[in-house]
Design a protein around this nucleic acid. Structure first.
Lengths: 420, 420
DNA sequence: TCGAATTTGATTACGCTAACAACAAAATCA
DNA sequence: TGATTTTGTTGTTAGCGTAATCAAATTCGA
């Protein structure tokens, strides 16, 4: 693929500045006009004009004065229309499906989640799942509330360009054109007009969420690990979300770490998630105190069982402590490689790694001190901040991207589509 | 680190367009004005003005007409002043030191290389090495030829911000402020004025070179592997050179691939370069037909010995074939992990992997088919195109970066400095 | 409580830059 | 040789951010 670098024109400047202002408000919620001027290094006059345009697009509201008690004339506050401009966020997880309406600024206005096999929700059948999403979206959507886009988080390998799910082992899916399906059988039917539908991997959206509103805020280089049934990974490099040439980046679960390890479903041996994933923890802790059979197909996530083990380890249980220690060791060995490859500013641990952060950290730090080449003080290790909300928040963020990049175009196009 | 997104102004637009035009010419060598207009999507009038400004900065020349025989008035060709605007490129390798004068457009105008221990060149002592570089640079530099920057490639872990070499195991260095040293004891003394000095890891500059002028041209997502004494790595992600938060990114040599492998100098066990590096190949092929003792300190690179083994493998020698096969196997196992993490469009193999590409490829392809999750047809595997020139070309490219980004500022500043 | 100082909003004029339009120039093609 | 096509050149226009100025609204100090 050859990239041609284009020149800039007036409109590009305007659009960029409009985008910068809107993004600031999206991230901060509300700012005074003078603060906007300071952050963007733009002139007061320019900010006024930009805010007026955003106002005319129904994206922001100019409200009260900024009453902070500083001297001088107080500045006008500019707020986000978080209730008037929303996206639809969908999460297709292993054991549940969730749909949320997320307002500009990242506010989750409403959310519905159903577990698989309950509430009439489907198993992993694609059609049933679309039906579930359709039903949830219908409940949530108010006809007068404009929706600017939809984002879908799914536990699978997703092609960025069109939301084609190449494979989703934990759902039993192969070759599902999820983007098209959601567009035609959910968005178009529920809303009555088309909006862009973006699909991405759950962990990739996790890092996007943590970077925008969670534990990775302000960090330009981030590695995010999410311990669920497998190990998911997402990366921010140089301030940008890394998705790879096709969108498959961040598939770290099957990095080889132990050639003598157990066989993995992918055909390899000693993959990272075989050694440091949820099943490894359950296996190492022994099956006695755990009701689930860890290898039963279609089983529900062992989150409850994992938490029991972690609690036991905190309480001094030797078997649980051993299991946690081993998982931490293999986690650290793989993580050392990633740190050497990316040199991240911060590593964010989500999923079960986030919940068990306190018991994992000591071992991790020790392993990394040995194995990571970069000065050890360089990389921060922190737990995720958004917990289970991360994929939905990330999906919403992804769906907001076109609006944030081209506020005027997206809103104009939306007006046309809705009025038809 | 908090990033503030700034707005754009007139000057930013002008600078961007100036930069885009100059970069096109830097990459293509010469283009007609109408081609420039087409590529940049800028107006004819604008291109004229921009080219005139670049001409007044002594960066380009307007020359003959474009005589391609198409109908219509022929367009004026715009060429690069490759002989008038140059950078100094320095390579500090394990067994040699090289200095080159590289003109705009990437033309290597002149080059001097000395092996360590010959020609009065130093071993690995920092002072001696600076002396060598000083001598070579003095020979190469013509006083009337303006130098806009200097770039240094070094086999070590380098902090991007200031060119501080944290550690360079193969040179025996620790904590060497190489950027400062080259600036004060080479550039300032040889040229008589200051220019920015940038330092980076050899493999990182390798991928920059291959991406700009080699086998990775046009690819937005690239993984580059260089097999030398160790394994060096460089990454292009989403069209951008990836250096990490501090500049240590791409240190893939010590990724753990085999916990039962040999001890590595880094303290780990079964690091990638222990299993798939030069020493592994020499070890696996047996020592009988090789004069060098592979583990003698300060030894010269075993490039010759490696090539002997590769040639023997091509000829059907079973021992050599086994050694090459094992190296390919471990190389593939590690590479599968990298492919899953980055989802690159292209993987470029340099150093000994490039020279042995034909004998490595079959095994690599087989391993990747098994181990890499992404559709196997997705990622291209190609040998490097620039061979030993890559680090110097990359260093020059790095040194040209400020000029390409802000042509007017850099040239004005240079004028002032040289006239003092 | 009142005036000075400070900071911001609003308005207008200005400068910079790219685009546009019209015409001239230089080639190909029939 | 004339029609056609493409590009260079020139003057004009439009868009956008900035600077300058004045008015407005607050805090601070006496």
């Amino acid at each position: 693929m050859v990239r041609i670098e284009h020149g800039s024109t007036h409109e590009a400047v305007r659009r960029h500045n409009l985008s910068v202002v809107l993004r600031q408000l999206h991230l901060q919620g509300a700012l005074s006009r003078s603060e906007l001027a300071a952050r963007t290094e733009l002139n007061r006059s320019t900010i006024k004009a930009l805010v007026e345009q955003l106002d005319s697009l129904d994206l922001v509201v100019e409200g009260d004065l900024d009453l902070r008690g500083t001297r001088g004339r107080p500045s006008t506050m500019v707020g986000i229309r978080s209730d008037q401009v929303v996206t639809l966020a969908v999460e297709i997880a292993v054991d549940s499906i969730a749909v949320a309406v997320v307002g500009l600024g990242g506010h989750v206005l409403d959310i519905r989640r159903v577990d698989r096999g309950t509430d009439g929700a489907a198993g992993t059948d694609v059609d049933d799942m679309l039906g579930t999403i359709h039903a949830l979206a219908t409940e949530l959507c108010q006809p007068d509330r404009p929706v600017v886009g939809a984002g879908v988080a799914v536990v699978g390998i997703v092609r960025r360009a069109d939301g084609f799910v190449h494979v989703a082992p934990n759902l039993g899916w192969t070759a599902v054109p999820l983007g098209e399906l959601v567009a035609s059988r959910v968005v178009q039917e529920v809303l009555g007009y088309d909006v862009p539908v973006s699909v991405a991997n759950e962990a990739d959206l996790g890092v996007l969420a943590e970077h925008t509103r969670g534990a990775a805020q302000g960090a330009a280089d981030v590695v995010y690990l999410s311990g669920e049934v497998g190990i998911g990974g997402g990366i921010i490099a140089d301030g940008r979300w890394l998705t790879g040439a096709r969108g498959y980046a961040g598939e770290i679960g099957h990095m080889p770490v132990n050639p003598d390890g157990l066989r993995c479903g992918c055909g390899g041996r000693g993959c990272w998630e075989t050694e440091a994933g949820e099943r490894a923890l359950l296996r190492l802790a022994g099956d006695a105190n755990r009701p689930d059979a860890p290898d039963a197909p279609g089983r529900r996530s062992g989150a409850g069982a994992v938490d029991e083990i972690v609690t036991a380890a905190r309480g001094g249980d030797p078997q649980a402590g051993y299991a946690v220690g081993e998982v931490a060791r293999w986690l650290g060995i793989g993580l050392a490689g990633l740190i050497n490859v990316f040199d991240p500013e911060r590593v964010v641990l989500g999923g079960m790694y986030g919940r068990a952060f306190d018991v994992l950290e000591p071992t991790l730090v020790e392993i990394l001190k040995d194995r990571a080449l970069t000065p050890s003080s360089g990389t921060e290790l922190v737990p995720a901040a958004l917990a289970t909300a991360a994929p939905l928040v990330g999906a919403a963020e992804l769906a907001f991207t076109p609006l944030l990049e081209q506020p005027d175009r997206v809103m104009d196009a939306l007006m046309n589509r809705r009025s038809q």
